[in-house]
Design a protein around this nucleic acid. Sequence first.
DNA 1: CGTCCAGGTCTAC
DNA 2: GGTAGACCTGGACGC
Length: 299
Amino acid sequence: MPSTSPTSRKPLARLALRGGGGEPILFAQTIGSHGCAALAPAVVAPDYSWYRTALRIGERVVPITLAVDAGELAIHADARLGASQSRAVVAQVTRMFRLGDDLSPFYRAVAGDPDLQFAALGAGRLLASPTVFEDVVKTICTTNCAWSATVRMTAALAGLGDGAFPTPERIAATGERWFTDVARMGYRGPYIAALGRDVAAGRLDLERLLPAHGMTDDDVEAALLELPGVGPYAAAHIMQLLGRHRRLILDSWTRPTYLARSGKKRATDTTMRRAFARYGEYAGLAFWLYLTRDWVPQP
DNA sequence: CGTCCAGGTCTAC
DNA sequence: GGTAGACCTGGACGC
């Protein structure tokens, strides 16, 4: 982990910190947008000034560091790459930040909203992992356990992957005992092993859930709910990372946090959904930002 | 040392 | 379709 700014070397690429509608993107708010973004092999700088993870470019593992340089998103790669490999890095970073997504309709919707208008400065992009597979596995590792267990399980998984998150093939080639006995994932072990096998064998294509493939929210949710270990909470969480922002993430952290933020004594899931329904397709994003607005200091 | 539960899900009614 | 009970793990409690 670099202890100082990594921007001393020439970046591999620099991308505009603008979304698909020309709206601004705050780097710190994005890399600090949710807890999973900081799970291994990724590292978030304590002051949110850089973000580190590793990509797979063909057969290679390419560690990258992202930071803001002269108002742009600078990508530093700890490896010498050819032109097509560099393009692959840029494509994956573009996907992680979902630079093509246009959040400006959401920003217009929160204008004048005392709770959420802060977001229009460039918050609300929930950082995705390099692959949907990584986000699905990590999300399953958040279920029914303390956050410390999520950190432990995902760190063990990252250790399988030569520096990057392990491929489905690598997981498929690992005995199921490893997940339970070494990674200590309990009953989640068989779920993760089965996911790796199904993706590696081509029976399951998680990357098709990306917005580019034109599926409806309902279809994506149904496909996610088919996955072992993915229920309503996990599906909503993964959908947020896919840029599908309608579903509210409802779990043992968001529910009490909503009460604390709103000052209400109690609120059912239906009450919370109704309270954010006016944000339409951004209801889940509005809910998440309402709960996490003070995570990263606002500029 | 036992019980409870944490960023839930699955199976069986 | 809605609701108990079980489920790995390990840290936080109460006794």
